[in-house]
Design a protein around this nucleic acid. Structure first.
Length: 290
DNA sequence: CCAGACGTTGTT
DNA sequence: GTCTGG
DNA sequence: CCAGACGTTGTT
DNA sequence: GTCTGG
């Protein structure tokens, strides 16, 4: 699925021409936004998985912005109870082996290219007010981190309910969209500032940097080396596929032939349902008072 | 009725 | 200053 | 969010 | 496609 919801009514021939941001969806106005309310009413709810996400702290009197990696608290290891610059590479290995992925609530839609072709599935991530923990005290310093954060579905039950469009009405599902306090974070290098950088260094803990880019120090150095060699790959660093001779408007990476392979009927049923835009839905009529 | 938007982040 | 690409 | 482009002619 | 603004 493509990040950035492309509404089903979008008229252009290339989804990249969408002239407004749909990467996120404010939970407080979700029912008054055409681009989100309609697919939500059709039960098009999804869950977005990620190791975590980044936020930048605005510092007073400087243009420097400190990035943080934010994620679910992880299972404790015998040696350390938290992840930080002091953690050893060994601890990190165990943590990564059992990493609990962040589960964020999203809404998706299906877009049929006007010129024909497979439907494009795309999604938006719902945002909520930031939690206390992200505006809290850290290293004796008050850090005012962020005003908003993604809506986190904490636990299997919340995830299941959010996905169960048949049994859980939009009204009920929206009750799952609230600020979660079950989150932790640590500062990371400004290497993450450039989105072209996609290396383990992006999420490695660092001491709060002071001025210029200081080299990673001591244990941090060792850990980075470990991350570079043994950590799970975040993406294939290989060269991008060379362009096809006759690829039309958008990159083929955004097109899926069949997001739900018709294996044993069940998925095919969902696939069929996804394409039926005119059918009455089994979901209760949406409420207007949230 | 028609025309035009349809959205979020953040803000010196 | 504003928009696109990642 | 941040980084980086923002443009046209014509082509080594 | 659906809603808002004029």
């Amino acid at each position: 699925m493509r990040w950035g919801l492309v509404p089903s009514w979008f008229k252009e021939d290339d989804p990249s021409k969408l002239q407004f941001n749909t990467s996120n969806c404010r939970s407080d106005t979700i029912m008054e936004k055409r681009s989100f309310k309609v697919p939500l009413g059709k039960g098009r709810r999804c869950v977005v998985l990620a190791d975590g996400f980044y936020e930048w702290q605005r510092c007073q009197n400087t243009s420097h912005r400190q990035p943080y990696f934010i994620y679910f608290p992880q299972i404790k290891t015998e040696k350390s109870s938290s992840i930080g610059a002091a953690s050893s590479p060994e601890d990190w290995e165990k943590v990564w082996d059992n990493w609990r992925l962040l589960t964020m609530a999203g809404i998706f839609d299906c877009w049929e290219p006007p010129q024909g072709g497979d439907c494009l599935y795309s999604y938006t991530i719902i945002t909520v007010d930031s939690c206390k923990g992200l505006n809290d005290i850290h290293h004796r310093q008050v850090i005012l981190l962020i005003p908003g954060m993604p809506a986190i579905l904490d636990g299997e039950e919340a995830v299941s309910k959010w996905l169960d469009f048949g049994e859980v009405s939009t009204q009920e599902a929206l009750k799952l969209i609230q600020t979660s306090e079950n989150i932790t974070f640590h500062p990371v290098s400004t290497v993450v500032n450039n989105s072209r950088n996609n290396t383990p260094e992006c999420l490695a803990p660092v001491g709060l940097e002071v001025k210029k880019e200081s080299k990673a120090s001591g244990s941090s150095q060792k850990m980075l080396q470990w991350l570079a060699t043994k950590s799970p790959k975040k993406e294939d660093p290989k060269t991008p596929q060379k362009a096809e001779p006759d690829v039309p408007q958008w990159s083929s990476q955004f097109l899926q032939k069949s997001p739900f392979p018709t294996k044993r009927g069940g998925a095919g049923c969902l696939e069929r349902w996804l394409k039926q835009e005119k059918e009455e839905e089994p979901v209760a009529k949406r409420p207007h008072n949230q």
